[in-house]
């Protein structure tokens, strides 16, 4: 098993400030809009709770399995599932079968978009002022 980087979320520290989403949308699209970011925050119980959701970079990634053109592949360095926009045909199957709605067709790019962990140094984690998003590593480090 390869080493995998992932973003661990801590809902108890999330304040719902959306700075992560602002950083993400700016990097992805060159402008700010939290709705277009590749992670989501759900606010619950009169704003008492904030639940961040990020792509799990699944071990069994349905998005990649259903992709008819094999456009979604695991990056060997980060372990992130990454969309190859040259291959993507924007069919939307990945979106349809993602259990946490963390991949979709962006209306401007007209391609499938999802978290690629920014190549290993996620801007959302850097933007988070409270540590609610944490960069973590999993996998078998002993093999190395």
């Amino acid at each position: 098993m390869t080493r995998k980087i992932f973003i661990r979320t801590h809902f108890d520290l999330c304040t719902g400030c959306e700075l992560c989403q602002l950083a993400c949308s700016q990097r992805l699209l060159g402008g700010y809009n939290p709705h277009r970011a590749l992670l989501r925050i759900a606010h619950a119980r009169e704003n008492l709770y904030h639940f961040p959701t990020v792509c799990s970079q699944c071990t069994n990634p349905y998005c990649a399995t259903v992709c008819p053109v094999d456009a979604i592949e695991r990056n060997a360095v980060t372990g992130a599932m990454v969309v190859d926009h040259d291959k993507c045909v924007a069919c939307g199957l990945c979106h349809r079968y993602c259990p946490v709605q963390m991949i979709w067709i962006d209306p401007d790019l007209k391609k499938s978009v999802k978290c690629d962990l920014c190549g290993g140094d996620p801007c959302c984690v850097k933007a988070c002022p409270t540590g609610a998003l944490e960069l973590a590593t999993t996998g078998d480090d002993h093999d190395g």
């Binding site: 108890d12 304040t15 719902g16 959306e18 700075l19 704003n47 008492l48 904030h50 002022p129 409270t130």
Partner: peptide
Amino acid sequence: FLGKAACHGCPIRCSQMGA
């Protein structure tokens, strides 16, 4: 107080949510 909430884009999170 239980936890903190922030307005859009704010690192201060002055809002102390609770019950």
